[in-house]
Design a protein around this nucleic acid. Structure first.
Lengths: 111, 111
DNA sequence: ATCTATTTCTTCGCTATTGTTGAATTAATT
DNA sequence: AATTAATTCAACAATAGCGAAGAAATAGAT
């Protein structure tokens, strides 16, 4: 049951998606954000699973919204990033930014 | 046995360590690099396991060096990052840099 | 010389955590 | 009852992690 002390890539991009979406951060749009930025399919199941783990670790919190008056308007579960979650995102950025500062250039790179 | 199409955090920092170490990139120093940058213990076993995965995916290559004339100077396995490996590191940086561009500031942040 | 201890480095076996998928469930509207 | 939007579930694959065993070398004693 040893829990990782840093953010994995998937967890990181989910936190970032929640931050970007603000008041519209629930399962489906979060998955869409991920797809848009990573250019590949992301199944809803994996997103919800990661969200659950992140909440367990105290990096996000969730609350059930009111059902909206549209067909299939089941109540949405909205997520927000906690202070600790934001702190870890910043920490991850700090470490990675330092690590790839002097990254060798790509051969065919267009500048 | 389906392989993931993006770099996990651990794999990413290992690639970066190999790049930084240049001609001295073998198991033990790689693990030390990781420890230095993450501020926590990293077991050799996990490093070697990740190196093996990365080589299988074609992101690094390895070659056995000559034994060195010192006590315990067993032949080392040296690693280099392939063109594809470097490409993936750049791609990961590109995506993350974009995603955390408008990151909200931390409360107690010192500017 | 050769045997044994010590050092450095790699490999192995196993467990835990994370990531993935597809199907099932819930709750609302028509 | 059918349809739609959303979440949850169950089973599985890949990644991460750890400790111990193994292999190859030198050093020191005998």
């Amino acid at each position: 049951m040893t829990e990782r002390s840093y953010l994995g890539e998937f967890e990181l991009v989910i936190l970032l998606a929640v931050l970007r979406l603000g008041g519209e951060a629930y399962g489906v749009p979060i998955a869409r954000e991920l797809e848009a930025h990573r250019g590949r399919d992301v199944s809803l199941g994996s997103v919800y699973a990661a969200l659950e783990r992140l909440e367990l670790k105290g990096l996000i919190r969730s609350s059930l919204g009111d059902p909206t008056p549209e067909r299939g308007g089941k109540a949405k579960r909205y997520f927000v990033v906690t202070a600790e979650g934001l702190r870890q995102v910043h920490e991850t950025r700090r470490v990675l930014t330092k690590l790839w500062r002097n990254l060798p250039a790509l051969k065919g790179e267009r500048t």
